[in-house]
Design a protein around this nucleic acid. Structure first.
Lengths: 223, 223
DNA sequence: CGGCGTGTTGATCCGGGTCAACTCTTGTGG
DNA sequence: CCACAAGAGTTGACCCGGATCAACACGCCG
């Protein structure tokens, strides 16, 4: 019935987009749409895996809770992002928690159906491998930066990456500073001080949640 | 000619091992063997990607150098481990450096051949996806622990994981303490102090490079 | 207009990095 | 097989980045 809309959802995602139309339609047939109001917990770490999830509209927080109760923000999904791939092949347990930050529409594909699809479409499997490679590279780079540079460097890296992702040097922060702190494993106070310091050094300008990068090379040297 | 040996190499690796014999033989046909003496740099970050690599014998260090010159140890490959998958799909550039820590034998598969193989064998692709999922999960867990607990917690996690990997509660550390420090993003001095403190708390016993875990639960509480 | 979440700023404290001296291993050559 | 050098590990003293605690300044929503 909403075949049409499902295809739109599939087209949002790079790993599906490059597939031949016939395969895209096959994917779209597997899609079930869901809506989650702001604040909904979509799944919890420990849940048995259910499905591969594409975010069509909204924002979803992916996080992990450490043994000591502290929350670690792993990423904030934007429309077109997907999640669930890492859990699909592992012990069938979710290891992260997904929460809708605002009202969100997602397209879900049942895990068994998705796995069958993968076995039939080498192209899709290769696309997914490519995407996961990228994730591994990013996580490794994060690890290196976290271990070798100070908070200023991590904030600089975050600003450069955000700017690159948005294709803007003058942009509105997609996350609250509080969340940036959780993402980088630091505190809001420190974020506030670092922003101030970067502004003093004329590397950025900030007004409320807006940031303008004034000296990209300068920031890169801090990483 | 060394078809026989190549197959042995292929059988070392879980993602290949479960393939039907015919496919394993196909993989083995693509294998080229190399030997690297201790200290050899097998490839450097920035090199164009060449091949997928399986370690048959020896030890290979995978690391990244941060902008400030500090080295981050990402993993130390043991026989049966493989590497190169993450680079194969990304910009064709290695982002890490591989160094032979001791004389090492590796089996290499040319990247083009490997990609073709993947397109033809969905089973292999799925196996590789599974392996990469695991890596992503581990990296995320590392990130969470790094951001939320102190060095003592990280050392505890490292000891528990090492013990689990070796299936022993009484084992010889596979890495020098200096390298454990680089791996965890800390210093040898701190590692030394943490080991001492864990010993005092009767959570472990240590003699030279040997560690005996005395209180697994106690260690888990520190993570 | 009042209240609550977010952000800022200051004061204080502590984990762990750095520097330095020393000891213990390990490996190499005579 | 020993001797000695070079690296690995340990211990202590010191210091600094950033977490914590606390008070205060803004929005924004009901």
């Amino acid at each position: 019935m909403d075949q049409h809309h499902a295809l739109e959802c599939v087209n949002l995602v790079p790993i599906f987009k490059s597939l031949p139309l016939i395969q895209k339609t096959a994917v779209a047939d597997l899609v079930v749409k869901h809506q989650y109001p702001k604040g909904t917990i979509i799944y919890l770490a420990g849940d048995t895996v259910g499905h591969f999830m594409i975010l069509e509209a909204g924002q979803i927080k992916i996080s992990q809770v450490a043994a000591n109760g502290k929350e670690q923000l792993l990423k904030v999904m934007q429309p077109g992002d997907f999640d669930g791939e890492a859990a699909l092949f592992n012990g069938n347990q979710r290891n992260v928690t997904a929460t809708a930050l605002v009202d969100s529409n997602v397209c879900q594909i049942d895990q068994d159906a998705f796995q069958k699809l993968l076995s039939r479409s080498p192209q899709l499997a290769v696309n997914l491998l490519s995407e996961m490679s990228q994730q591994i590279n990013n996580l490794q780079a994060d690890k290196t930066v976290a271990a070798t540079s100070d908070v200023t460097g991590q904030v600089a890296k975050y600003l450069l990456e955000t700017s690159a992702a948005l294709h803007e040097t003058n942009f509105k922060l997609p996350l609250k500073k509080k969340d940036i702190a959780t993402y980088l494993g630091t505190t809001p106070e420190t974020i506030s001080r670092v922003f101030k310091q970067l502004t003093t050094k004329k590397l950025i300008d900030t007004t409320a949640a807006n940031v303008k990068i004034r000296d990209e090379d300068g920031l890169m040297e801090l990483v």
